[in-house]
Design a protein around this nucleic acid. Structure first.
Lengths: 346, 346
DNA sequence: GCGGGGAGCGAGAGCGCTCTCGTCCCCCGC
DNA sequence: GCGGGGGACGAGAGCGCTCTCGCTCCCCGC
């Protein structure tokens, strides 16, 4: 492919501008203590030579990398079934870019990768990590925590209550679920069922808890376990119709599940929302809009979630002296609000 | 957050093992010329101290980074509407990981980002780049090409024919489209319509070309321009039904478009596939399976595409001496085959 | 038994940067 | 007018690694 041209060094710029390396360094890094005419001469030399600092040399001495790792554990699971991941990444990317940090993406698959990632993070190649781990029993968060890398988690890790110093950003799954169920009740429904997500993920557990918060003494048969897939939605819906033919509303743990449920309801001749109202979760597009009828669902601001994670992390590394809000102190976890999006299904 | 512990250096390992830095370096980098007992002693020292090489120091001298940039231009467009992006990334990630390369993700948005990305790539922070740019008029590929970074493109860049040395990986959009249309003809359909994708993308152009390859003298009114969205699918389908009520088949440029078309067909009381057969493109899950009826479509192996891009790039950097196939020589572009997935819609 | 050729290992330079000091000069105050 | 203080700049060390080069020692051949 292409030959690499030897790139100009600080030395070269210094020579051209007729100053010392130190001065060039000062100008390049925006430090003060260089008088304007000189600084200008340096800037011109930089421009003329097309000088770009060598990041490797720089980190060698500063021990900073201006790079953040984004660790996504077991992508096959849920992350890859929808554009969540991409949106979150976008939020993260925006925030990192704004503070001149690079995004190093680490996707893991299986246990050997855990070790690899842990080694990488412990290796001090990045200044911090944003970690998405969905499963309760995932050893990765522990490993990372132990690696001593500043970390912010995406979604509540299961042990977040116990350990101290764990910072995470999550949607208000529980509150969102409550809103969904209350909405159904507000529609005059009383026999509200719930199809859960994969209960080895905190988001599913929290949504179930939210459901129970409102439906305090619901018939336990109205809750069926799913796993966030359309297939599970179908199976669960069949089971529900079988067990409780009189149900008049369903709160599904996510939109995919809701889509499956919708199909079974139609198959059984139940009209939505007339006979059975359905609410999903995620507002996953284009699915939520494309179901028949379009899905009423709980939206979370995914991109903001990513952005916030990055911001919290950078703040912890005090990279964001410019951010006036919330300066100082160790950042703490954030729960983002959700909003109910009303479409036709409920 | 956490304090960084001073990590052991080569020097420390050398001291502990009672050898010189050079020897440790040799062992760590798997070079030969160190006798077994000594090598073993070094390995033990490495183990005991938990030594991890400082990548910055290493790249400073080797001028290698073992890092590849993945540039995704204008993610809002199509990439984020579906899980494509994630799958491609997964393929890329797997391949890079297998060769111990890091993945630096650069998402761009708007023109200023172009400059930023170009500067970054020109800055020699990475050894190569994988670039996804979907629009015909995107200046980014040019900029990158000029930055002198070895690059492999995802999807055929519009000017790929002209320029020499441009390497890309793409699906056989044209061939896939031909297969789709032939399948419809094989079903006994004769009035086959096509809803195109956004024609500022080569994939859409190629699919249209494939359609025309087979439907050589189709009524021009049977082709309506879309933009890969469900909304466009609906609009286009209405227009088609209006212009050519007698049509008996539709080839949509992608599954989203097909989903829109499906809805309009149902709305107009046309049975699918009895009255009108429909074929999509992408096999985008879960959409393709969730439509009513489930969509017959053209599948492309997205993950393989990513993996291949990475492999081509690494090969160009000769990082993959171990790959027996296709050794030596500049890599050239690859077109991946597609497969027709038969479901209920055609 | 002796010379020559490796192979195995160590010494040292240097990658391109930052940052601490030290030097110089300018400007101020008395 | 002179001393002192401070700001502007330069000199130099050193970050942790790789890699070339040279020394040593061992083994082989005649």
């Amino acid at each position: 492919m292409t030959e690499t041209v030897p790139r100009p060094t600080l030395e070269a710029v210094a020579a051209r501008a007729g100053v010392s390396r130190a001065t060039v360094s000062r100008v390049v890094n925006g430090a003060d203590g260089v008088r304007e005419p000189l600084a200008e001469r340096v800037r011109r030399a930089v421009e003329e030579l097309g000088y770009v600092p060598n990041q490797a040399a720089r980190s060698l001495v500063t021990k900073r990398h201006d790079a953040i790792a984004v660790v996504v554990a077991e992508p096959e699971t849920r992350v890859f079934a929808d554009p969540f991941f991409a949106r979150q990444l976008r939020g993260i990317s925006k925030e990192l870019t704004a503070h001149d940090n690079q995004l190093v993406l680490l996707l893991t698959e299986g246990r050997d990768d855990h070790a690899r990632v842990a080694r990488y993070l412990a290796g001090g190649h990045v200044d911090g990590a944003l970690v998405f781990s969905l499963h309760l029993d995932d050893p990765l968060p522990e490993l990372i925590q132990r690696a001593g890398v500043p970390t912010v988690f995406g979604g509540r890790p299961d042990w977040s209550g116990g350990k101290n110093g764990v910072v995470y950003v999550d949607s208000d799954n529980r509150g969102g679920a409550r809103d969904a169920v209350r909405h159904l009740l507000g529609l005059g429904r009383s026999r509200v069922a719930h199809i859960t997500g994969a209960l080895d993920q905190t988001s599913a557990v929290d949504r179930l808890d939210g459901f129970r918060d409102v439906m305090v003494d619901a018939d336990p048969r109205l809750v069926v376990e799913g796993d966030f897939t359309p297939a599970a939605g179908e199976r669960a819906m069949r089971e529900l119709l079988d067990r409780c033919p009189g149900l008049d509303a369903v709160f599904a743990a996510n939109d995919l599940t809701a889509a499956g449920a919708l199909r079974v309801l139609r198959e059984h001749g139940r009209r939505v929302p007339d006979d059975v109202a359905v609410v999903g979760f995620d507002d996953m597009l284009p699915i939520a809009e494309q179901t028949d009828p379009p899905l009423t669902t709980v939206r979370q601001d995914i991109e903001e979630m990513g952005r916030l994670m990055a911001r919290l992390l950078l703040r912890g590394l005090d990279r964001t002296a410019d951010a006036p809000e919330n300066v100082g102190g160790t950042p703490s976890s954030v729960i983002l609000p959700t909003t109910l999006v009303r479409r036709a299904s409920a």
